[in-house]
């Protein structure tokens, strides 16, 4: 009631206002004429499809989970390249290049390490000379993990097939046992392994945990009790 008293809304024909708002909505979200009818209807908060009429639209399933709808989209449709630019249409679409490569469930959906090791790719190690062979070091580093996750095994082999020692040592990782403190929060914010993993090389998702955390704990292993639990007076 007070709103009506403050604003002279009674004079404004409400239908006109609704139409004006729909127009604004259509312009800002690039909705075409056919869809404006739907938005007009959806103003009365509709229940979620396939659920009870009483379930509010606010309580949708997987509210924050965004799916990759159009994976490996061609450049002109990928949301980063400008379709108005002629060059965007000349660029190779990723799907064309990925034919025959081993697949994964994350990142580019290509298993780059397998593709290289099985010979599906022959990337140059030298800018000019295709015959230069990489300096491969086959050394696995086991990093114990305090919590219940399996211990991390770092394989030098696939890394040295792509990279050079100087890419990581000594700036990112000090080449000395016990000198590098690593945690997942730092990795996800782009430090340590996160300098590449989660940006270019395979990303940090639930499906990729076991690629690093690959050495199971001994059978008699038990998770360490926290101090709050050990010193608990009510224990």
């Amino acid at each position: 009631m007070t709103i009506i008293k403050i604003l002279p809304l009674k004079q404004v024909p409400s239908k006109l206002a609704v139409i004006a708002l729909i127009c604004l909505f259509a312009i800002v979200s690039n909705v075409n004429a056919a869809e404006t009818g739907a938005t007009k209807k959806s103003m009365k908060l509709k229940p979620v499809q396939g659920q009870s009429d009483k379930v509010s639209k606010a309580n949708v399933f997987n509210r924050l989970l965004k799916k990759d709808k159009n994976k490996n989209a061609p450049p002109a449709e990928d949301g980063i390249h400008d379709p108005a630019n002629e060059g965007s249409h000349v660029l190779q679409p990723p799907k064309v290049a990925y034919v025959g490569l081993p697949t994964t469930e994350f990142g580019n959906y290509v298993d780059w390490v397998q593709a290289l090791q099985k010979g599906y790719l022959k990337p140059r190690y030298d800018r000019m000379d295709p015959k230069v062979e990489p300096l491969v070091m086959d050394l696995d580093i086991v990093r114990p993990v305090k919590a219940s996750m399996p211990d991390v095994v770092f394989p030098h082999k696939p890394h040295t097939q792509w990279l050079h020692c100087s890419n990581c040592h000594p700036k990112i990782f000090i080449p000395q046992k016990g000198a590098n403190q690593i945690n997942m929060a730092a990795i996800m914010l782009g430090e340590k392994c996160g300098v590449c993993h989660g940006k270019v090389s395979f990303p940090i998702t639930t499906k990729s945990c076991k690629k690093c955390h690959s050495k199971p704990k001994p059978k008699n292993w038990k998770p360490p009790l926290s101090q709050a639990s050990v010193k608990n007076p009510w224990r």
Partner: peptide, 8 residues
């Protein structure tokens, strides 16, 4: 990365 290794 299809054509060059990271090192290059």
């Amino acid at each position: 990365r299809i054509r060059f290794r990271c090192k290059v």
